[in-house]
Simulated assay, not measured.
Amino acid sequence: MFRFDENLKVYLHRDPVDFRYGMNSLSILVEQAMHLNPMDSSLYIFGNRRRDRVKIIGWDGSGFWLMTKRLETSRFIWPDRKTEVVALTSASLHALLDGDDITAIHRHPREEYLRVS
């Protein structure tokens, strides 16, 4: 089971994806578009074009997990970065999943909530 603790690596795919994609297609996207290893201990987040849904895949050592969340009354706020991949902290992951605007989070001097990889 995944625990979203502070040591978890989280990567956000900036561009929208086709939400018919399942675990296999998303893991290929991690490898080919994000240039990361889908079978490490990280989570990979994908959003649809309307930004009201996210899919998260992760590898737990024996298989892939696929998690989906849909917001009913709002939209996910995606970072407007020039890079293809955005690295998030676990705190910003929790904020994103709560529907908060993670681009408006103010950084504490000792903690970086959003970083570009």
Rank of each mutant, 00 (worst) to 15 (best):
Y44W: 06
L26K: 01
L97R: 02
T103L: 03
S62D: 09
L43F: 02
D52A: 08
E6K: 12
E6S: 14
V54D: 08
D5A: 01
I57D: 10
L43R: 03
A104Q: 14
M23C: 08
L97P: 02
M23I: 12
A104D: 11
S74P: 04
F64Y: 05
S25G: 10
T103H: 02
V86Y: 06
K69L: 10
R20V: 07
D5E: 14
G58Y: 07
S42T: 01
F64C: 01
A87H: 04
S27H: 02
F19M: 11
V86D: 09
G63V: 03
I45S: 08
L66Y: 02
M34A: 02
W78Q: 01
S92L: 00
S74T: 15
F19V: 04
V17K: 10
K9Y: 06
K82D: 06
I57F: 08
V86P: 05
R3K: 12
F64M: 13
K82H: 07
R51D: 04
L8P: 00
H35N: 13
H94S: 12
G47N: 15
T83F: 00
D98N: 15
W65R: 00
D40M: 05
V85R: 04
W59L: 05
V86C: 11
R3M: 07
R81Q: 11
R20N: 10
G58D: 05
V30M: 02
P38A: 07
L26P: 05
